[in-house]
Design a protein around this nucleic acid. Sequence first.
RNA 1: GGUAACGUGGCCGAGUGGCUAGGCUCAGCUCUGCAAAAGCUGCUACAGCGGUUCGAAUCCGCUCGUUACCUCCA
Length: 498
Amino acid sequence: MQQKLSLYNTLTRKKEVFEPLHAPFVGMYVCGPTVYGEPHLGHARSAVTFDVLYRYLKYLGYKVRYVRNITDVGHLENDADEGEDKIQKRAKLEHLEPMEVVQHYTNVYHKDMDKLNVLRPDIEPRASGHIIEQIAMIQEILENGMAYVVNGSVYFDVPAYHKNHNYGRLSGRIIEDLLSNTRETEGQGEKRSPLDFALWKKASPSHIMRWPSPWSDGFPGWHLECSAMSRKYLGTTFDIHGGGLDLMFPHHECEIAQSQASHNHTDAARYWVHNNMITVNGQKMGKSLGNFINLSELFSGKHELLTSKYSPMTIRFFILQAHYRSTLDFSNEALQAARKGYTKLMNGLHVLQKLQYQEENENGTPDEKLNAEIQKLIEDCFRGLSDDLNTARTIASLFNLLKKINSFYLGQLPLSALTRGTFDYMSNTYKELVLDVLGLKEEPLGDMEDMLDLVLDFYKEAKEAKAYDKVDTIRAELKKQGIVIKDLKTGVDWAYEE
RNA sequence: GGUAACGUGGCCGAGUGGCUAGGCUCAGCUCUGCAAAAGCUGCUACAGCGGUUCGAAUCCGCUCGUUACCUCCA
């Protein structure tokens, strides 16, 4: 019934049928945020994309271990030799301990992701909590002759690695091209080759975040944490590695190199999955361009590019309505369309709650053609998801299914034409895909106090009309909600039931 | 400069060589006290030029345009 899931593997540049290494277990590692600033729409896209993958794998019955890291050390501003640690820089600016900065932005990230209904990963390791593992890994690489020490810093020796391996395999780079295109020795410093990258950096006296190591008091290179932590929690070879397309080079390329150089297992992860970027007016949304929109700004509407605020579920739907490997262009029009589309899907949920398949329907004559048509629409939903997680197609199919559901609701199509099996399949699939797999949920309605005021108005009217049965009903129903009505001399008010 | 993508109707956005993606917008109809919702119908496109093919948005080539990566970014 459900097709096998296929995923586009950056490593092979092909869609491949997903087969876990040790079914039913699946190990999945996704590069999480560097917690030195507010999470933005780009973070949301990555998180939502892999959230849906996580959810769908679980839906298919796999036992998934989902690891997503928090980068809290070693991510430098610029070139590995020159740059300042992003977190340390922020800490200086705000007169905080670096770990305060880390904690603050981790909290914000969690809060925003929760709003987007992104499930927390099973393990969320921090780079600073895995210094020992990273040092051990550097030692292995040194022993294998693919790194060298200079003045207390350790660098990965890309040319040495490339003799027996293929540096550039993931990103399709050719090492000779990379070498010839590198700017003239600028900022190369201690590195033997401009392609080499830091595994361990000796800390300058002013550097706060530092740990002892066999080579110096210092800190690990950015790429290393992912190699060390994925290995620790998922093993030397695991199933899926995800992240944003912009991490493919050099970050993921370096990860592969480190992993191979240390334990000599091929590629570490078997399926490399990359989500594409969000664009604004056709241009990538990015830190360096300064055109990114924070999630809190989207939720509140406070940003010069925004004409209104957009709810978390609107954002989630917006992201899901495009395929994860396409760029997705931000615009207010697109967001507003997403809001309506999302609402439509939610209304479908309500309709389904009201639709009851009655016993007598079973005595009807099933319309074979209609049953078959609905079965096909349901299978289309799965076809989209299974085909490289094409949520756009799944949503389109859900809308097609919804048309039928609405027609049943309006009595334009008779429920008795459906078998109970088809009805349950339709109803369950719609609910499960929308809620459990796409991870959409209903957002609270408008202002409850305004609604209460409306009820109180009816209450007053009923009282004036001496319609006491109505009055009693209103009181009883509100009491069920934990609310009591107070008839005061000054008017009618409500209070929480004590 | 090197590498890799992409160019779909008013907007967003799917698309496995032949069968209506879908959403939003707009117009009309059904329904309706007025509306809304919903259903139905319409507006029906594949950058350009060649080629392959019985048949191409889909494959190939060229041209034009846009973008990404090669430096930090999800």
